[in-house]
Design a binder for these strands. Structure first.
Lengths: 245, 245
DNA sequence: TCTAAAGCAAGAGCAGTGCTCTCGTTAGTG
DNA sequence: CACTAACGAGAGCACTGCTCTTGCTTTAGA
């Protein structure tokens, strides 16, 4: 129905997309701080006030870009998981395919990455619209763990007693079919993964790490190990998951 | 000599400090994006142009705040290491004392933390002045690993062949007295540590991790394990460091 | 089919920003 | 004592986000 009722609405969505595209261009060129509504409007041949028909404020434009960036990196992770190399073979290798894909996207889009995993730029509180797209990468990693658990099993990592309640809470929220120890370790690995990527994208590795590809691959492998992913040859030997749940 | 020659120079350094203090206040209140030279000057009772006698541009003022923030978090880490609980006892416990201190500082100064470990705000290239202060936390962690290596030994983590050249390069640069596998693992753990802290400070754990203290402690312990820190009871059993170097 | 309503672009304008330049003035140096 | 260099103040430029008003066009309803 939106195609027939279109006409005006289609024009609107086209202009909206053009604004976001130009904004993304400026974001990639100069960074989020220099992104200017007036410059976007100027480049699009309209006057700045016209732009407010589409985005009520600069922060709302930025929020739209944030959602898009979350979706882009999420789609990248999901695509890597659907790849032949990402959906078969030893589980740590699949894990590494996904993490490397995320890292590659981050290095290719540093400013968009900074928008979502750097300091929160806008009014300090992330809008509600971002929570869905923001979880896509995490869900892919969770899916990898679930796959491993259902096929070859998992070497469930240790779970300190004082963390058990929180681990069980996270498990109920995120993946009731996985052992709490695995879920807790996976959330930690998720954050640590983006620590590695952020340090690389934000230049913290300058003059410290030079050969970053093997460095990241090793760290990613260790991360997979920390959530208990087995490489198949040792299939099942450490599967204590069900017993611990 | 600077005390006698002072008078004017002392006044200058006092004004400089006052500017930085007020800027830090505004930074903590509203974030780096909203920090305004004019507002700082206004609050200090001077006119905005006078402020340019002390900082040639807004980015230079921000850079000064960045250096100060690096120094603050570095000093925090060093102080934690010098603490009784940070300088004795099992090595993973010492490690956790330091990492928790860094985390506490970050949670107490979120905007300053974002300034140094979030998206690079200024002209995209970090000035040379920041490399020294920026490495202080890393050096503390390195010192912890060295202590462990010299007393109880280290369970040197695995080192993939393709990472060996880079690991040896990093070792020559950072800590020639440590096994390359440990140095490589430590650099990775360093980045992963700030991934955990950043996710917490930047709100990525909202509605995901609730009980964050035990969560962080567990992750920190695992990080210590990943660099090979032993807890003393198993002293020496896994010390393969010298053999691998 | 005609009309009222809603969506839209444009322009002027406000308050605020970073930054530059030009002035007197004041404080340390030879 | 005279000189120079540092300093604070002010005006001003180009820019920003954002608001309000003014007309025009498209859409929807009687």
């Amino acid at each position: 129905m939106s195609t027939i009722r279109g006409a005006r609405e289609r024009a609107r969505s086209e202009v909206t997309a053009a604004i976001k595209d130009e904004a993304r261009r400026q974001l990639a060129a100069d960074g989020a701080a220099k992104l200017s509504l007036r410059a976007v409007a100027r480049e699009l041949g309209m006057v700045s006030s016209a732009l407010y028909r589409y985005f009520p404020s600069r922060d709302d434009l930025l929020t739209a870009l944030i959602v898009d960036a979350y979706d882009a990196v999420g789609a990248t992770a999901e695509a890597a998981r659907a790849t032949p190399r990402g959906s078969s073979g030893p589980h740590p290798a699949r894990w590494t395919v996904v993490t490397c894909a995320v890292r590659d996207w981050a290095l290719a889009h540093p400013h968009e990455y900074g928008l979502i995993y750097g300091s929160p730029v806008p009014g300090y509180t992330a809008p509600q619209d971002t929570v869905g797209p923001a979880s896509r990468v995490g869900l892919v990693l969770l899916g990898l763990a679930r796959d491993a658990y259902l096929t070859d099993g998992l070497a469930a990592p240790p779970l300190a007693p004082e963390l058990r309640p929180e681990a069980e809470r996270m498990t109920a929220d995120l993946a009731p079919d996985l052992p709490p120890a695995v879920v807790a370790a996976l959330v930690a690995a998720w954050a640590q993964l983006f620590g590695l990527i952020s340090f690389e994208v934000f230049g913290q590795f300058t003059r410290v790490v030079e050969e970053r590809d093997p460095f990241f691959r090793r760290a990613s492998r260790e991360l997979a190990r920390s959530v208990g992913l087995l490489d198949g040859r040792t299939a099942g030997t450490g599967s204590t998951g069900r017993a611990m749940s």
